[in-house]
């Protein structure tokens, strides 16, 4: 009873206060809305602890059961442990334990600069390879819709570089709208914008509907399966 009722009451009260505080930003709703936002920020800090615990739990389980790819989990946990210890004890920090954790010259800063940053950039850069390979295999003018998409992609790819301007620079000013950068801009600001706005309105209506269901206690999945 309590496990279900109390969370429902909290959700209802917080939800209603936040909605009302948006339209009536005066006392007591304005202050309460601000307080609830601060509570949210404080609670979100605990997500880091939960995230760390979850990481250890999932990868520890994978290693102990020797599941396929357990070696990667070991590397992940080792990286997590080393970074955590080095950061918490501020090892190699020129100012010792009193110094800032990101102080230049500290081991934590070195891990960040020489391991984390290049690895992150490398992972992001791999996207270029997948985009190129996928474009070659999947971007085919199979029907009208695919052809429109293909033409739009060509305009954006060319329009986002110097090549686009170069290829159509010879067009007279009266036909400036046909220059590739202008066409690319038109694609972004007209069809793309209309589509994006339509999507946003749809998504917003969905969010309002789901939020109302949560606030009114109609949607209870977040309480867990045994609370149905």
């Amino acid at each position: 009873m309590l496990r279900r009722t109390i969370p429902l009451i909290i959700t209802f009260v917080v939800g209603m206060v936040l909605v009302i505080s948006f339209f009536i930003p005066h006392k007591p709703f304005g202050t309460l809305g601000e307080d609830f936002s601060v509570f949210f920020d404080i609670i979100s800090v605990f997500a880091f602890v939960l995230g760390g615990g979850n990481l250890v739990w999932i990868h520890g389980d994978k290693i102990s059961k020797r599941r396929p790819g357990w070696g990667y989990s070991a590397v992940c946990l080792a990286g997590f442990a080393v970074t955590l210890v080095v950061g918490m004890l501020k090892l190699g920090n020129p100012w010792g334990i009193q110094g800032d954790v990101t102080e230049a010259g500290s081991m934590f800063d070195s891990i960040y600069m020489y391991i984390f940053t290049p690895l992150s950039s490398t992972m992001f850069a791999l996207l270029a390879y997948y985009v190129a390979s996928a474009s070659y295999r999947a971007f085919r003018a199979k029907n009208l819709e695919a052809t429109i998409l293909l033409v739009a992609a060509f305009l954006i790819l060319l329009g986002r570089t110097f090549t686009g301007a170069l290829l159509t620079a010879w067009l007279p000013d009266s036909l400036a709208f046909l220059r590739i950068p202008n066409l690319a801009n038109w694609v972004m600001m007209t069809p793309n914008l209309s589509g994006q706005r339509a999507l946003m309105i749809g998504i917003s209506l969905g969010i309002i509907s789901t939020s109302l269901k949560l606030i009114l206690g109609i949607e209870r999945n977040y309480l867990g399966a045994d609370n149905e």
Partner: peptide, 13 residues
């Protein structure tokens, strides 16, 4: 890189 991708897309088509 954009030009290379465009060339590959043209070849693919």
């Amino acid at each position: 890189a954009h030009l290379v991708i465009i060339i590959f897309v043209v070849i693919g088509n």
